[in-house]
Design a protein around this nucleic acid. Structure first.
Lengths: 198, 198
DNA sequence: TTGAGGCTAGCACGAGTGTACTAGGATGGC
DNA sequence: GCCATCCTAGTACACTCGTGCTAGCCTCAA
C-alpha cells in the first residue's frame, strides 16, 4: 500500500540478498550476485544502494519491518494464551517463510563485526523484540508491562523462543515442529498462572 | 599434552580464523587474511589445509573440542544444581573467552549454506549438546536420561541457554550477566523439584 | 656427509570483488 | 513539443580471491 516504485525496487533487491544468503551463505553476497539474482544491472543496484553496506542494512531493516507488520496484524481474541501463541508463531521458524527469516537473522548477526550499521539494526530489532515480549508477559499476567514480573517473564520467554528457534533450524525444514509449540504453550500457561507476588 | 607440532600449527591457524571472524565478520576470512594474521605464508597454510573448507571445518571442530574439554574437566560435587550451573557457565557467553566462542559459533552457523562440511560439524555439535543437557536434566531429576522427563526438560533447558546466550551477545561484553545466571538457576531448581510423573 | 621429506615462501593465473564513471533510455511536468 | 530528472546498462580500474606450482629451506635419520 502506497509504496513508491523506488521502494519496490529496493525491496526486490533486498529479497535477492535474502535468497543468496540462504542458499550460499553471507559470504556469497556481492553487488554482482545480488544484481544478477534480481535481474538488474550492477549500475542500477548502485543507483539505489551506493555502497554494499547500505544494501545489507536495508535488507535487514526490511526483514524486521515485514515481521513487525505480520505481528501487528494480529488482534487479541478471547483467549490471551492463544493470542500470544499466535504472535510467537509468527516469529519462530515454523513455516518455510519464517524459517527463512530466522536463518537470515542469524546470518546478519554473524556479519555485524564487519558492519557497524548492521550491528545497529540488530540491536534495534532485539530491543523491540524484548519490549514486545515484556508486553506479552504483562498481558498474560494481567499486569502493567512496567513491573518486575512481566520484565522477568518476558526475558525468559524471549530467551526460550530464540533458543527454540535455533533448535528448529537444526532440524530439516519439513520435520515436525509440534514439540516446540508444546514447550511454548507450557511456558505461556506457566506465566499466566504465576503468582502475582515474587 | 601430546600434540604434534603439526597439530599445534593447525590450531594456531584456526585461532587466526576465530580472530578474523570476531573482528571483521565471516566474510573477511580468506586464506590470505588468515595466513597474515597467523604470521605464515599462504603456501604454508595451504600445506596444512589444502582447501579453504578444510580450514573452516577444522576451526569449527577445534572450538567444539576445546569446549568439550572444559566441560569434561568439571566433576560433580555435593550440590547437583551447582555442578550443572558450572557446566552451563562454561557454555554461555559469560566471560570474554566463552563469548568469543559463542559468537564464533553463530558466525559458522550462518555460513553453513555455502559449506556442507560446516553444516555437518554444526549438527554434530548440536546433537552432542542436546545429549549433554538431557543427561544434566536426568542428573538433576535423579532419573535415567533415557526417560521422557529428562528429554523434555533437557530440551527446554538447552533452548533457554541458547536463547540467553543470544541475548548476552546483544549487550556489551563488560555488562552485567548476573540476570542470566539467575534465570538459569531458577530453571535448574524447577527441574530438580519437578514431579516425577508427567 | 649425505639425502629425503616435511615445510616455507612466493609467484602466476584466472576469476571475482567494490566502486567510479559515462552514455543513453524512459518518464513525467510544463 | 521540450527538457530536466530519474534510472539503466555497461565499461574500466585497482584490488582481492582461491588455487596451482616451483624453488629452496630446514631437520633428522642413515
Amino acid at each position: 500500500m502506497g509504496y513508491t516504485p523506488r521502494e519496490e525496487r529496493k525491496a526486490r533487491l533486498a529479497e535477492a540478498v535474502w535468497e543468496i544468503v540462504l542458499e550460499q551463505g553471507i559470504s556469497a553476497v556481492s553487488v554482482r550476485t545480488v544484481a544478477a539474482r534480481a535481474g538488474v544491472a550492477v549500475g542500477s543496484l548502485r543507483h539505489l544502494f551506493p555502497t554494499q553496506s547500505e544494501l545489507l542494512e536495508f535488507s535487514a531493516e526490511l526483514m524486521v519491518e515485514r515481521a513487525t507488520e505480520r505481528v501487528s496484524a494480529l488482534v487479541p481474541g478471547a483467549d490471551p494464551v492463544e493470542y500470544v501463541l499466535a504472535v510467537i508463531s509468527e516469529l519462530l521458524p515454523l513455516t518455510p517463510e519464517t524459517r527463512r527469516e530466522f536463518e537470515l537473522n542469524m546470518a546478519l548477526i554473524a556479519e555485524t563485526p564487519g558492519n557497524p550499521g548492521l550491528a545497529r539494526a540488530r540491536d534495534d530489532a532485539h530491543a523491540r523484540l524484548l519490549d514486545l515480549f515484556i508486553r506479552l508477559a504483562g498481558f498474560l499476567r494481567g499486569e502493567e508491562p512496567s513491573g518486575e514480573g512481566p520484565r522477568h517473564d518476558g526475558r525468559r520467554l524471549l530467551a526460550l523462543c530464540d533458543g527454540l528457534g535455533l533448535h528448529l533450524l537444526h532440524q530439516p525444514a519439513d520435520a515436525d515442529t509440534g514439540w516446540a509449540v508444546v514447550l511454548i504453550r507450557e511456558e505461556l500457561d506457566r506465566i499466566r498462572g504465576a503468582e502475582r507476588v515474587r
